[in-house]
Nucleic acid binder design. Structure first.
Lengths: 218, 218
DNA sequence: ACAAATTACGAACGTTCGTACTATTATTAA
DNA sequence: TTAATAATAGTACGAACGTTCGTAATTTGT
Protein backbone atom coordinates (compact mmCIF):
# COMPACT_ATOMS: atom_id res chain seq x y z
CA UNK A 1 0.00 0.00 0.00
CA UNK A 2 1.58 3.25 -1.10
CA UNK A 3 0.88 6.59 0.50
CA UNK A 4 -1.23 8.03 -2.33
CA UNK A 5 -4.09 5.58 -1.92
CA UNK A 6 -3.60 4.47 1.64
CA UNK A 7 -7.08 5.49 2.73
CA UNK A 8 -9.30 3.70 0.25
CA UNK A 9 -10.67 0.51 1.67
CA UNK A 10 -11.50 -2.67 -0.21
CA UNK A 11 -15.21 -1.98 -0.15
CA UNK A 12 -14.81 1.44 -1.69
CA UNK A 13 -12.67 -0.03 -4.41
CA UNK A 14 -15.19 -2.65 -5.50
CA UNK A 15 -17.92 -0.09 -5.19
CA UNK A 16 -16.04 2.01 -7.69
CA UNK A 17 -15.73 -0.99 -9.99
CA UNK A 18 -19.46 -1.61 -9.75
CA UNK A 19 -20.32 2.01 -10.44
CA UNK A 20 -18.04 2.04 -13.45
CA UNK A 21 -19.85 -0.93 -14.94
CA UNK A 22 -23.20 0.53 -13.93
CA UNK A 23 -22.42 3.84 -15.58
CA UNK A 24 -21.37 2.21 -18.79
CA UNK A 25 -24.46 0.04 -18.84
CA UNK A 26 -26.87 2.83 -17.93
CA UNK A 27 -25.49 5.14 -20.59
CA UNK A 28 -26.38 2.54 -23.19
CA UNK A 29 -29.58 0.95 -21.96
CA UNK A 30 -30.89 3.43 -19.43
CA UNK A 31 -31.17 3.35 -15.66
CA UNK A 32 -34.19 1.09 -15.72
CA UNK A 33 -32.03 -1.59 -17.31
CA UNK A 34 -29.61 -1.48 -14.39
CA UNK A 35 -30.48 -4.91 -13.03
CA UNK A 36 -28.61 -6.45 -10.14
CA UNK A 37 -28.16 -9.76 -11.93
CA UNK A 38 -26.65 -8.34 -15.11
CA UNK A 39 -24.39 -6.04 -13.14
CA UNK A 40 -23.22 -8.90 -10.93
CA UNK A 41 -22.44 -11.01 -13.96
CA UNK A 42 -20.60 -8.13 -15.59
CA UNK A 43 -18.38 -7.52 -12.57
CA UNK A 44 -17.90 -11.19 -11.73
CA UNK A 45 -19.55 -10.88 -8.33
CA UNK A 46 -22.49 -12.58 -6.74
CA UNK A 47 -25.85 -10.83 -6.75
CA UNK A 48 -25.95 -10.59 -2.98
CA UNK A 49 -22.38 -9.41 -2.72
CA UNK A 50 -23.04 -6.62 -5.15
CA UNK A 51 -26.38 -5.75 -3.65
CA UNK A 52 -24.82 -5.30 -0.22
CA UNK A 53 -23.08 -2.17 -1.43
CA UNK A 54 -26.41 -0.44 -1.95
CA UNK A 55 -29.51 -0.62 0.15
CA UNK A 56 -31.82 -0.91 -2.80
CA UNK A 57 -31.99 -0.71 -6.55
CA UNK A 58 -33.09 2.89 -6.26
CA UNK A 59 -29.96 3.70 -4.28
CA UNK A 60 -27.89 2.03 -6.95
CA UNK A 61 -29.52 4.19 -9.61
CA UNK A 62 -28.91 7.35 -7.65
CA UNK A 63 -25.32 6.36 -6.87
CA UNK A 64 -24.73 5.70 -10.55
CA UNK A 65 -26.20 9.06 -11.50
CA UNK A 66 -24.10 10.84 -8.87
CA UNK A 67 -20.96 9.17 -10.16
CA UNK A 68 -21.83 10.22 -13.71
CA UNK A 69 -22.32 13.81 -12.65
CA UNK A 70 -19.11 13.71 -10.64
CA UNK A 71 -17.22 12.63 -13.74
CA UNK A 72 -18.88 15.31 -15.82
CA UNK A 73 -17.89 17.96 -13.36
CA UNK A 74 -14.39 16.60 -13.18
CA UNK A 75 -13.97 16.38 -16.93
CA UNK A 76 -15.98 19.28 -18.27
CA UNK A 77 -17.10 21.76 -15.66
CA UNK A 78 -14.15 22.22 -13.32
CA UNK A 79 -11.56 22.52 -16.10
CA UNK A 80 -13.70 25.19 -17.73
CA UNK A 81 -13.37 27.25 -14.59
CA UNK A 82 -9.67 27.52 -15.37
CA UNK A 83 -10.54 29.61 -18.41
CA UNK A 84 -10.88 33.32 -17.76
CA UNK A 85 -14.33 34.60 -16.85
CA UNK A 86 -16.56 35.57 -19.71
CA UNK A 87 -16.85 34.26 -23.23
CA UNK A 88 -13.75 32.11 -23.08
CA UNK A 89 -15.08 30.19 -20.12
CA UNK A 90 -18.40 29.60 -21.88
CA UNK A 91 -16.61 28.34 -24.95
CA UNK A 92 -14.47 26.05 -22.82
CA UNK A 93 -17.52 24.65 -21.08
CA UNK A 94 -19.26 24.01 -24.37
CA UNK A 95 -16.24 22.35 -25.94
CA UNK A 96 -15.66 20.15 -22.92
CA UNK A 97 -19.32 19.25 -22.84
CA UNK A 98 -19.25 18.10 -26.43
CA UNK A 99 -16.09 16.10 -25.95
CA UNK A 100 -16.58 14.45 -22.64
CA UNK A 101 -18.78 11.57 -23.76
CA UNK A 102 -16.23 10.74 -26.42
CA UNK A 103 -13.20 10.81 -24.16
CA UNK A 104 -14.87 8.87 -21.43
CA UNK A 105 -15.98 5.43 -22.59
CA UNK A 106 -19.63 6.32 -22.14
CA UNK A 107 -22.19 6.00 -24.89
CA UNK A 108 -24.16 9.03 -23.78
CA UNK A 109 -24.25 11.70 -21.09
CA UNK A 110 -25.57 10.04 -17.91
CA UNK A 111 -27.37 13.17 -16.79
CA UNK A 112 -29.09 13.74 -20.12
CA UNK A 113 -30.20 10.11 -20.24
CA UNK A 114 -31.54 10.29 -16.70
CA UNK A 115 -33.33 13.55 -17.32
CA UNK A 116 -35.48 12.14 -20.12
CA UNK A 117 -35.99 8.81 -18.37
CA UNK A 118 -37.24 10.17 -15.06
CA UNK A 119 -38.78 13.50 -16.02
CA UNK A 120 -42.29 12.14 -15.58
CA UNK A 121 -41.67 9.63 -12.79
CA UNK A 122 -41.84 11.17 -9.35
CA UNK A 123 -39.54 9.74 -6.72
CA UNK A 124 -36.09 10.12 -5.22
CA UNK A 125 -34.32 9.43 -8.50
CA UNK A 126 -36.18 12.19 -10.24
CA UNK A 127 -35.41 14.51 -7.34
CA UNK A 128 -31.72 13.78 -7.72
CA UNK A 129 -31.86 14.41 -11.45
CA UNK A 130 -33.63 17.72 -10.97
CA UNK A 131 -31.09 18.82 -8.38
CA UNK A 132 -28.13 18.01 -10.59
CA UNK A 133 -29.72 19.63 -13.61
CA UNK A 134 -30.56 22.72 -11.64
CA UNK A 135 -27.01 23.07 -10.44
CA UNK A 136 -25.72 22.78 -13.98
CA UNK A 137 -28.32 25.22 -15.23
CA UNK A 138 -27.37 27.77 -12.60
CA UNK A 139 -23.71 27.28 -13.43
CA UNK A 140 -24.34 28.18 -17.04
CA UNK A 141 -26.40 31.18 -16.08
CA UNK A 142 -23.65 32.41 -13.82
CA UNK A 143 -21.09 32.02 -16.60
CA UNK A 144 -23.28 34.00 -18.97
CA UNK A 145 -23.81 36.72 -16.41
CA UNK A 146 -20.05 37.03 -16.11
CA UNK A 147 -19.79 37.54 -19.85
CA UNK A 148 -22.36 40.28 -19.53
CA UNK A 149 -20.46 41.91 -16.69
CA UNK A 150 -17.24 41.81 -18.66
CA UNK A 151 -18.94 43.62 -21.51
CA UNK A 152 -18.51 40.82 -24.01
CA UNK A 153 -22.21 40.04 -24.05
CA UNK A 154 -24.86 42.70 -24.48
CA UNK A 155 -26.31 44.00 -21.21
CA UNK A 156 -29.82 42.89 -22.18
CA UNK A 157 -28.75 39.31 -22.81
CA UNK A 158 -31.18 36.86 -21.20
CA UNK A 159 -28.91 34.35 -19.50
CA UNK A 160 -31.74 31.94 -18.80
CA UNK A 161 -32.69 32.01 -22.46
CA UNK A 162 -29.07 31.40 -23.32
CA UNK A 163 -28.92 28.34 -21.06
CA UNK A 164 -32.18 27.07 -22.58
CA UNK A 165 -30.77 27.25 -26.07
CA UNK A 166 -27.40 25.85 -25.08
CA UNK A 167 -29.09 22.77 -23.69
CA UNK A 168 -30.94 22.43 -26.95
CA UNK A 169 -27.74 22.46 -28.95
CA UNK A 170 -26.21 19.78 -26.75
CA UNK A 171 -29.32 17.63 -26.86
CA UNK A 172 -29.58 17.88 -30.62
CA UNK A 173 -25.92 17.02 -30.96
CA UNK A 174 -26.32 13.88 -28.88
CA UNK A 175 -29.30 12.87 -30.98
CA UNK A 176 -27.38 13.33 -34.21
CA UNK A 177 -24.46 11.37 -32.87
CA UNK A 178 -26.26 8.49 -31.20
CA UNK A 179 -29.43 8.07 -33.20
CA UNK A 180 -28.39 9.21 -36.67
CA UNK A 181 -24.73 8.35 -36.11
CA UNK A 182 -23.89 11.49 -38.02
CA UNK A 183 -20.18 12.19 -38.14
CA UNK A 184 -20.91 15.88 -38.62
CA UNK A 185 -22.90 16.24 -35.43
CA UNK A 186 -20.20 18.30 -33.80
CA UNK A 187 -19.99 20.59 -36.81
CA UNK A 188 -23.70 21.33 -36.60
CA UNK A 189 -23.37 21.89 -32.87
CA UNK A 190 -20.44 24.25 -33.30
CA UNK A 191 -22.32 26.29 -35.89
CA UNK A 192 -25.38 26.49 -33.69
CA UNK A 193 -23.25 27.55 -30.75
CA UNK A 194 -21.48 30.17 -32.82
CA UNK A 195 -24.81 31.62 -33.86
CA UNK A 196 -25.98 31.62 -30.25
CA UNK A 197 -22.88 33.42 -29.04
CA UNK A 198 -22.96 35.90 -31.89
CA UNK A 199 -26.49 36.97 -31.10
CA UNK A 200 -25.52 37.55 -27.49
CA UNK A 201 -22.39 39.55 -28.26
CA UNK A 202 -22.39 43.21 -27.41
CA UNK A 203 -22.55 45.47 -30.42
CA UNK A 204 -19.18 47.13 -31.00
CA UNK A 205 -19.36 50.68 -29.70
CA UNK A 206 -18.73 52.49 -32.97
CA UNK A 207 -21.88 50.94 -34.40
CA UNK A 208 -24.05 51.33 -31.36
CA UNK A 209 -26.07 54.36 -32.37
CA UNK A 210 -28.01 52.61 -35.09
CA UNK A 211 -29.30 49.83 -32.85
CA UNK A 212 -30.32 51.62 -29.72
CA UNK A 213 -33.82 50.20 -29.36
CA UNK A 214 -33.63 46.42 -29.18
CA UNK A 215 -37.01 44.81 -29.21
CA UNK A 216 -37.48 43.64 -25.66
CA UNK A 217 -40.30 44.33 -23.28
CA UNK A 218 -39.29 46.26 -20.17
CA UNK B 1 -73.62 -0.92 -36.49
CA UNK B 2 -73.81 2.36 -38.36
CA UNK B 3 -72.29 2.96 -41.76
CA UNK B 4 -69.42 5.14 -40.64
CA UNK B 5 -67.61 2.45 -38.71
CA UNK B 6 -68.97 -0.69 -40.33
CA UNK B 7 -65.57 -1.98 -41.32
CA UNK B 8 -63.72 -1.99 -38.04
CA UNK B 9 -63.78 -5.36 -36.40
CA UNK B 10 -63.83 -6.08 -32.70
CA UNK B 11 -60.19 -7.03 -32.64
CA UNK B 12 -59.11 -3.77 -34.18
CA UNK B 13 -61.15 -1.89 -31.66
CA UNK B 14 -59.60 -3.54 -28.62
CA UNK B 15 -56.20 -3.23 -30.23
CA UNK B 16 -56.79 0.49 -30.41
CA UNK B 17 -57.76 0.53 -26.76
CA UNK B 18 -54.58 -1.33 -25.87
CA UNK B 19 -52.39 0.99 -27.91
CA UNK B 20 -53.99 3.99 -26.30
CA UNK B 21 -53.12 2.71 -22.85
CA UNK B 22 -49.68 1.66 -24.05
CA UNK B 23 -48.98 5.08 -25.49
CA UNK B 24 -50.00 6.83 -22.34
CA UNK B 25 -47.88 4.52 -20.24
CA UNK B 26 -44.84 4.66 -22.50
CA UNK B 27 -44.87 8.43 -22.64
CA UNK B 28 -44.55 8.49 -18.86
CA UNK B 29 -42.35 5.54 -18.00
CA UNK B 30 -40.68 4.70 -21.30
CA UNK B 31 -41.06 1.80 -23.70
CA UNK B 32 -39.05 -0.53 -21.50
CA UNK B 33 -41.72 -0.21 -18.85
CA UNK B 34 -44.40 -1.41 -21.27
CA UNK B 35 -45.01 -4.72 -19.52
CA UNK B 36 -47.75 -7.09 -20.60
CA UNK B 37 -49.04 -7.55 -17.08
CA UNK B 38 -49.42 -3.88 -16.25
CA UNK B 39 -51.02 -3.18 -19.59
CA UNK B 40 -53.47 -6.05 -19.15
CA UNK B 41 -54.46 -4.81 -15.74
CA UNK B 42 -54.88 -1.29 -17.05
CA UNK B 43 -57.20 -2.37 -19.86
CA UNK B 44 -59.06 -4.96 -17.81
CA UNK B 45 -57.99 -7.84 -20.00
CA UNK B 46 -56.10 -11.03 -19.32
CA UNK B 47 -52.41 -11.16 -20.06
CA UNK B 48 -52.84 -13.83 -22.71
CA UNK B 49 -55.77 -12.08 -24.32
CA UNK B 50 -53.80 -8.90 -24.66
CA UNK B 51 -50.65 -10.66 -25.73
CA UNK B 52 -52.49 -12.37 -28.60
CA UNK B 53 -52.79 -9.04 -30.37
CA UNK B 54 -49.02 -8.81 -30.76
CA UNK B 55 -46.57 -11.52 -31.55
CA UNK B 56 -44.06 -10.33 -29.00
CA UNK B 57 -43.21 -7.53 -26.65
CA UNK B 58 -40.99 -6.02 -29.29
CA UNK B 59 -43.92 -5.88 -31.69
CA UNK B 60 -45.97 -4.20 -29.02
CA UNK B 61 -43.28 -1.55 -28.57
CA UNK B 62 -43.07 -0.92 -32.30
CA UNK B 63 -46.83 -0.81 -32.66
CA UNK B 64 -47.01 1.70 -29.83
CA UNK B 65 -44.33 3.84 -31.42
CA UNK B 66 -46.07 3.70 -34.79
CA UNK B 67 -49.33 4.77 -33.22
CA UNK B 68 -47.59 7.67 -31.50
CA UNK B 69 -46.05 8.84 -34.75
CA UNK B 70 -49.38 8.43 -36.52
CA UNK B 71 -51.00 10.72 -33.99
CA UNK B 72 -48.18 13.23 -34.27
CA UNK B 73 -48.56 13.33 -38.02
CA UNK B 74 -52.30 13.65 -37.72
CA UNK B 75 -52.16 16.39 -35.15
CA UNK B 76 -49.07 18.36 -36.07
CA UNK B 77 -47.59 17.52 -39.41
CA UNK B 78 -50.52 17.10 -41.78
CA UNK B 79 -52.37 20.22 -40.56
CA UNK B 80 -49.17 22.23 -41.09
CA UNK B 81 -49.27 21.24 -44.74
CA UNK B 82 -52.45 23.27 -45.03
CA UNK B 83 -50.43 26.41 -44.40
CA UNK B 84 -48.91 28.00 -47.49
CA UNK B 85 -45.44 26.88 -48.47
CA UNK B 86 -42.58 28.75 -46.92
CA UNK B 87 -42.20 30.44 -43.58
CA UNK B 88 -45.85 30.16 -42.62
CA UNK B 89 -45.75 26.41 -42.95
CA UNK B 90 -42.63 26.18 -40.82
CA UNK B 91 -44.22 28.33 -38.15
CA UNK B 92 -47.34 26.19 -38.25
CA UNK B 93 -45.30 23.02 -37.88
CA UNK B 94 -43.40 24.45 -34.94
CA UNK B 95 -46.52 25.69 -33.18
CA UNK B 96 -48.30 22.38 -33.67
CA UNK B 97 -45.25 20.52 -32.46
CA UNK B 98 -45.15 22.50 -29.24
CA UNK B 99 -48.85 22.10 -28.64
CA UNK B 100 -49.49 18.52 -29.54
CA UNK B 101 -48.31 16.89 -26.33
CA UNK B 102 -50.50 19.24 -24.36
CA UNK B 103 -53.64 18.68 -26.40
CA UNK B 104 -53.23 14.96 -26.52
CA UNK B 105 -53.25 13.41 -23.07
CA UNK B 106 -49.64 12.31 -23.43
CA UNK B 107 -46.94 13.25 -20.95
CA UNK B 108 -44.24 13.52 -23.59
CA UNK B 109 -43.66 13.09 -27.30
CA UNK B 110 -43.54 9.33 -27.98
CA UNK B 111 -40.96 9.71 -30.72
CA UNK B 112 -38.63 11.87 -28.66
CA UNK B 113 -38.85 9.45 -25.75
CA UNK B 114 -38.15 6.49 -28.01
CA UNK B 115 -35.24 8.23 -29.70
CA UNK B 116 -33.31 8.70 -26.47
CA UNK B 117 -34.27 5.30 -25.11
CA UNK B 118 -33.17 3.24 -28.09
CA UNK B 119 -30.44 5.36 -29.65
CA UNK B 120 -27.74 3.03 -28.38
CA UNK B 121 -29.62 -0.28 -28.48
CA UNK B 122 -29.50 -1.96 -31.86
CA UNK B 123 -32.54 -3.91 -32.93
CA UNK B 124 -35.84 -3.59 -34.76
CA UNK B 125 -37.20 -0.97 -32.38
CA UNK B 126 -34.22 1.28 -32.93
CA UNK B 127 -34.59 0.78 -36.68
CA UNK B 128 -38.18 1.91 -36.49
CA UNK B 129 -37.24 4.96 -34.46
CA UNK B 130 -34.53 5.94 -36.92
CA UNK B 131 -36.90 5.57 -39.84
CA UNK B 132 -39.57 7.75 -38.25
CA UNK B 133 -37.04 10.35 -37.19
CA UNK B 134 -35.49 10.42 -40.61
CA UNK B 135 -38.85 11.00 -42.23
CA UNK B 136 -39.56 13.87 -39.89
CA UNK B 137 -36.10 15.31 -40.41
CA UNK B 138 -36.51 15.20 -44.18
CA UNK B 139 -39.92 16.80 -43.86
CA UNK B 140 -38.43 19.75 -42.04
CA UNK B 141 -35.63 20.09 -44.52
CA UNK B 142 -38.11 20.12 -47.37
CA UNK B 143 -40.15 22.81 -45.66
CA UNK B 144 -37.05 24.94 -45.18
CA UNK B 145 -36.02 24.46 -48.79
CA UNK B 146 -39.43 25.75 -49.82
CA UNK B 147 -38.90 28.87 -47.76
CA UNK B 148 -35.61 29.34 -49.57
CA UNK B 149 -37.26 28.88 -52.95
CA UNK B 150 -39.94 31.37 -52.08
CA UNK B 151 -37.27 33.93 -51.26
CA UNK B 152 -38.24 34.26 -47.63
CA UNK B 153 -35.09 32.55 -46.43
CA UNK B 154 -31.65 33.50 -47.65
CA UNK B 155 -30.38 31.37 -50.54
CA UNK B 156 -27.40 30.18 -48.53
CA UNK B 157 -29.53 28.93 -45.66
CA UNK B 158 -28.41 25.48 -44.53
CA UNK B 159 -31.65 23.56 -44.19
CA UNK B 160 -30.00 20.66 -42.42
CA UNK B 161 -28.50 23.03 -39.90
CA UNK B 162 -31.93 24.59 -39.47
CA UNK B 163 -33.48 21.19 -38.76
CA UNK B 164 -30.70 20.42 -36.31
CA UNK B 165 -31.37 23.57 -34.33
CA UNK B 166 -35.12 23.21 -34.51
CA UNK B 167 -34.88 19.79 -32.90
CA UNK B 168 -32.75 21.33 -30.20
CA UNK B 169 -35.38 23.94 -29.42
CA UNK B 170 -38.09 21.30 -29.15
CA UNK B 171 -35.93 19.03 -27.01
CA UNK B 172 -35.01 21.83 -24.66
CA UNK B 173 -38.64 22.85 -24.40
CA UNK B 174 -39.71 19.36 -23.41
CA UNK B 175 -36.96 19.25 -20.81
CA UNK B 176 -38.06 22.56 -19.32
CA UNK B 177 -41.66 21.46 -19.25
CA UNK B 178 -41.28 17.92 -17.96
CA UNK B 179 -38.18 18.03 -15.80
CA UNK B 180 -38.19 21.60 -14.51
CA UNK B 181 -41.95 21.97 -14.85
CA UNK B 182 -41.31 25.48 -16.00
CA UNK B 183 -44.46 27.29 -17.04
CA UNK B 184 -42.43 29.54 -19.30
CA UNK B 185 -40.97 26.71 -21.35
CA UNK B 186 -43.01 27.68 -24.37
CA UNK B 187 -41.91 31.30 -24.10
CA UNK B 188 -38.26 30.29 -24.18
CA UNK B 189 -38.98 28.01 -27.11
CA UNK B 190 -40.78 30.72 -29.03
CA UNK B 191 -37.92 33.15 -28.50
CA UNK B 192 -35.37 30.59 -29.60
CA UNK B 193 -37.45 29.79 -32.66
CA UNK B 194 -37.83 33.46 -33.52
CA UNK B 195 -34.07 33.90 -33.36
CA UNK B 196 -33.57 30.85 -35.55
CA UNK B 197 -36.01 32.10 -38.16
CA UNK B 198 -34.60 35.61 -38.09
CA UNK B 199 -31.10 34.43 -38.83
CA UNK B 200 -32.36 32.45 -41.79
CA UNK B 201 -34.43 35.27 -43.25
CA UNK B 202 -33.27 36.80 -46.49
CA UNK B 203 -31.87 40.28 -46.14
CA UNK B 204 -34.33 42.81 -47.55
CA UNK B 205 -33.14 43.87 -50.99
CA UNK B 206 -32.60 47.55 -50.31
CA UNK B 207 -29.99 46.62 -47.72
CA UNK B 208 -28.30 43.88 -49.65
CA UNK B 209 -25.25 45.72 -50.90
CA UNK B 210 -23.61 46.06 -47.52
CA UNK B 211 -23.69 42.35 -46.74
CA UNK B 212 -22.64 40.71 -49.96
CA UNK B 213 -19.98 38.43 -48.57
CA UNK B 214 -21.50 36.19 -45.93
CA UNK B 215 -18.91 34.16 -44.13
CA UNK B 216 -19.43 30.67 -45.46
CA UNK B 217 -16.93 28.36 -47.06
CA UNK B 218 -17.66 27.49 -50.72
C1' DA C 1 -0.20 -13.01 14.74
C1' DC C 2 -4.58 -12.61 16.31
C1' DA C 3 -9.04 -10.71 17.23
C1' DA C 4 -12.36 -7.77 15.30
C1' DA C 5 -14.62 -5.98 11.63
C1' DT C 6 -15.62 -5.78 7.03
C1' DT C 7 -16.80 -7.86 2.71
C1' DA C 8 -18.44 -11.49 -0.28
C1' DC C 9 -20.96 -15.70 -1.12
C1' DG C 10 -24.75 -19.29 -1.76
C1' DA C 11 -29.23 -20.41 -1.26
C1' DA C 12 -33.79 -19.33 -1.08
C1' DC C 13 -37.83 -16.16 -0.81
C1' DG C 14 -42.10 -14.44 -3.27
C1' DT C 15 -43.16 -11.75 -7.60
C1' DT C 16 -43.29 -10.60 -12.09
C1' DC C 17 -41.49 -11.11 -16.51
C1' DG C 18 -42.53 -12.85 -21.61
C1' DT C 19 -44.47 -16.57 -23.92
C1' DA C 20 -46.50 -21.03 -24.98
C1' DC C 21 -50.51 -24.08 -25.21
C1' DT C 22 -55.62 -25.30 -24.74
C1' DA C 23 -60.30 -24.20 -23.93
C1' DT C 24 -64.17 -21.19 -24.08
C1' DT C 25 -66.68 -17.43 -25.48
C1' DA C 26 -68.10 -13.67 -29.11
C1' DT C 27 -68.52 -12.29 -33.53
C1' DT C 28 -69.35 -12.86 -38.30
C1' DA C 29 -70.92 -14.90 -42.90
C1' DA C 30 -73.94 -18.32 -45.02
C1' DT D 1 -79.86 -20.27 -37.31
C1' DT D 2 -76.00 -22.48 -37.83
C1' DA D 3 -71.32 -23.28 -39.05
C1' DA D 4 -66.98 -21.07 -39.32
C1' DT D 5 -63.97 -17.88 -37.56
C1' DA D 6 -61.99 -14.60 -34.53
C1' DA D 7 -61.09 -13.05 -29.93
C1' DT D 8 -60.39 -13.71 -25.20
C1' DA D 9 -59.60 -16.31 -20.91
C1' DG D 10 -57.25 -19.83 -18.33
C1' DT D 11 -53.32 -22.19 -16.97
C1' DA D 12 -48.67 -23.22 -16.79
C1' DC D 13 -43.75 -22.75 -17.82
C1' DG D 14 -38.83 -21.35 -16.95
C1' DA D 15 -36.24 -17.35 -16.25
C1' DA D 16 -35.10 -13.17 -14.09
C1' DC D 17 -36.42 -9.73 -10.89
C1' DG D 18 -35.17 -7.35 -6.08
C1' DT D 19 -34.34 -8.74 -1.56
C1' DT D 20 -33.19 -11.30 2.86
C1' DC D 21 -30.34 -14.14 5.78
C1' DG D 22 -26.86 -17.02 7.72
C1' DT D 23 -22.20 -18.16 6.96
C1' DA D 24 -17.59 -18.21 5.10
C1' DA D 25 -13.68 -15.59 3.58
C1' DT D 26 -10.89 -11.74 3.70
C1' DT D 27 -9.16 -7.42 5.08
C1' DT D 28 -7.89 -4.47 8.88
C1' DG D 29 -6.07 -2.47 13.31
C1' DT D 30 -3.23 -3.71 17.02
Amino acid sequence: MNAAQSKITKGEETRAVILNAALRHASVAGYGALTIGVLAEQTGMSKSGLFAHFGSKEDLQIATLDEGVRRFNQFAFVPALAAPRGLKRIVALFDNWLEWTRRSDLAACPLMVASTEFDDCDGPVRDAVVEHMNRLHLGIIKAVDMAISSGEFAPDTDSEQFAFELFGVIASCYRSRNLFRDQNANVFAQRAFARLVKSAMAVPQHKTLAKSGVRRKS
